[in-house]
Write a protein that binds this DNA or RNA. Sequence first.
DNA 1: GCGACAG
DNA 2: ATCTTGTCGC
Length: 264
Amino acid sequence: MEQEPSTSENYKDPQLLNKWIEIQDSLKKRLITEDGFNWKLPPIKDQDFEETEENQDSYRGEILKYVGGVDLSFSKNDPSIACATLVVLDFTTLEVVHEDSSIVKLSIPYIPGFLAFREAPVLLELLEKMKKRELSSYPQVLMVDGFGLACHLAVLADLPTIGIGKNLHHVDGLTQPRVRQLLEANGNSCSDIITLIGDSGSTFGVAMRSTEGSMKPIFISVGHRISLATAIKIVKLCCKFRVPEPTRQADIRSKDCLRKFGIS
DNA sequence: GCGACAG
DNA sequence: ATCTTGTCGC
């Protein structure tokens, strides 16, 4: 039987969009924007670490070791064909210790504002597959492309996530020139980080120069069960290049996977 | 009216 | 996301 091609034209049904908005609202209510995990950053990497007696000897809890990254790459011929990849890196060495990919046909097109309905299901599958196998390298925190997707996936997977953006999410009065202006005003002085506060007063995340040479910032947003301050620390420590390694490796390997299967 | 709009 | 040339530098 012939299927209608999935284009955004098929998804103008206001009923469906309203349902999606309802789902997003209910997930938003479950979103936690404070640190909610049982691990700590390695002391030597933690800028704010204080050399107290308690820190030196009595901390026997978990240390952050496994940082995950996910990404999808698409066929240029058929935008509904994609490879989704989950990688896990050792936070100390930034070496990839786990990799899994899945070729999928996505039934939902990309609609700005609703990315998660297209990409979250396959990523959730990869996470659940890894969890079922009880692999010890299951990520303690996950980097996800896109502000909304990071939140959406995090709540569904009940996993701390950090949103990584290569471009600014234009929302609530946030504009490209405004961000550039603020970064330049910051100059060489203190940090290369500016907080992104919209017209409504809500904080959406930060723009950060992750590398000396990069004029173009990356955008870090709070996902779930992690504070913005902690997210920034982790991302900074993962940046060998402009894009943090977990996200970068997921991107590279998902493209490799498409090639491997001869998908163009 | 036109362009922009996470991926 | 993807299409796209060359160029500079390590």
